[in-house]
Design a protein around this nucleic acid. Structure first.
Lengths: 248, 248
DNA sequence: GGGGAGAGATGCCGC
DNA sequence: GCGGCATTTCTCCCC
């Protein structure tokens, strides 16, 4: 036996699952997955997390992402068979199955965790378009965005409005480097607007901090424009406070 | 104090970091992030993981993905200030900063984890194109894929070859439902091949288990074709074994 | 629930 | 390093 025989892991596990606790298991195991795709992971040390919504994550000791996972509402059973422990996870609705065979269990811990808080995020694409709406001169002098009401009729467009010569302007924002796809997207939107409004002359602009050369070439080939704009950061003051705290 | 004052978490943390152990911390905390974007997460119970490569994950008790994270090679310091514990994580190279303030620490555990194993995955897009290469009749009678050498010259194309009438055929595989983007992609590839080979008549086919109506309309409008093909699963035998094991 | 598009996307492989 | 592209993508919004 490679784990403490005095502890009844199966019982402790079942209790934690039933109570909706979050479970952490560290152990040496092999992992088999079958569902949308299939995979096999040979034996090694891993960290397992089962959340209160019955999400399962299998993490290796390096890397950002779980090597295997099961979505919420999955059923999990821990059971012993001869000299090994097995975790068997099934999501019948999604037809997904995951089996873990432990040769060694380093530790297991369960804990009731309470949290319902949501993340407040700044600097997204929507924040960029909001910034342009509030500061239309970022695009060019004389640019006038359409009213919120008019705009929501064309919800798929990040920003649009009229320029100094009353030409309609369609703007696609990208928070990171604009690529090929961004140009395709802008092209589609301009086409739709031309058709929808019965216009022949509509300007298209990509607003992004950077753009790839390929994308820029295609953009110009299609008669569109590029404008360098960085996504906004609102929390500067809060950030400064944090930085001061960081001077340890 | 909301944690065991007899434990020197700061010392234990530093030792674990220096030894490259994986650390798990459960506690009630608030999280501030500043980098590519910015975010703030109000106080709640979370599970923190620091891996041996210095990846940090912050998990809430529900959901698949970490609510906050730092990539590998980040520096982490745990320190006490008045009635709170702080975890301060910095990645100077990426200009990313994350601060966590704990009001309560449920537990902390560190463990040496050893693993270098890689996942063996089946059912990906590449597996689909491999399957078509081995069984060209899945596309149609008389379809002849190009040789491996010729194919690698156009690495961006999943499969291509000649049909019964010696017309060039470009195939784009999608392991899940094909969408608008898949059609755009196929269009780009066919254009490139036409230009590259100086041909005017090149067939384009999307091979996928499903396709959206919009995508199908656009596909036909452009004179391309759709072929229903499911991604392969190789491990059927292994799978059956697992299912038998699952009859508990 | 399907479709379309964003993401602090991530990760892989190419040049 | 950038660029192109897949991902058991995941997530959100809207129809």
């Amino acid at each position: 036996m490679f784990w403490d025989v005095n502890l009844d892991y199966e019982k402790e596990f079942k209790l934690a699952i039933d109570q909706g606790h979050t479970i952490v298991i560290s152990g040496c195991c092999e992992v088999t997955y079958n569902g949308r795709a299939q995979s096999y992971l040979p034996e090694g040390d891993r960290l397992l997390i089962i959340k209160s919504d019955k999400t399962l994550l299998v993490h290796q000791p390096e890397g950002n992402n779980p090597i295997n996972y099961m979505k919420g509402n999955t059923s999990h059973k821990l059971l012993r068979d001869k000299d090994a422990l097995y975790l068997k996870s099934q999501n019948l609705a999604l037809k997904e199955y995951l089996d873990i065979k432990f040769s060694r269990l380093h530790f297991m811990k369960s804990q009731r965790l309470e949290d319902g808080k949501k993340l407040v995020l700044n600097g997204s694409e929507k924040d960029m378009s909001d910034m342009i709406y509030s500061n239309p001169e970022l695009i060019e002098k004389g640019f006038r965005p359409l009213s919120r009401e008019e705009h929501t009729k064309f919800g798929f467009i990040d920003v649009f409005g009229y320029d100094n010569n009353n030409r309609l302007v369609v703007i696609e924002c990208k928070r990171y480097q604009a690529d090929f796809n961004a140009v395709q997207q802008l092209t589609r939107y301009v086409k739709k607007i031309k058709k929808n409004k019965g216009l022949s002359n509509v300007r298209g602009i990509i607003a992004a901090p950077k753009i790839s050369q390929n994308a820029l070439d295609l953009l110009r080939e299609r008669g569109f424009e590029y404008k360098t704009i960085k996504p906004p950061k609102y929390l500067e003051r809060y950030d400064n406070g944090q930085k001061r705290l960081g001077e340890y």
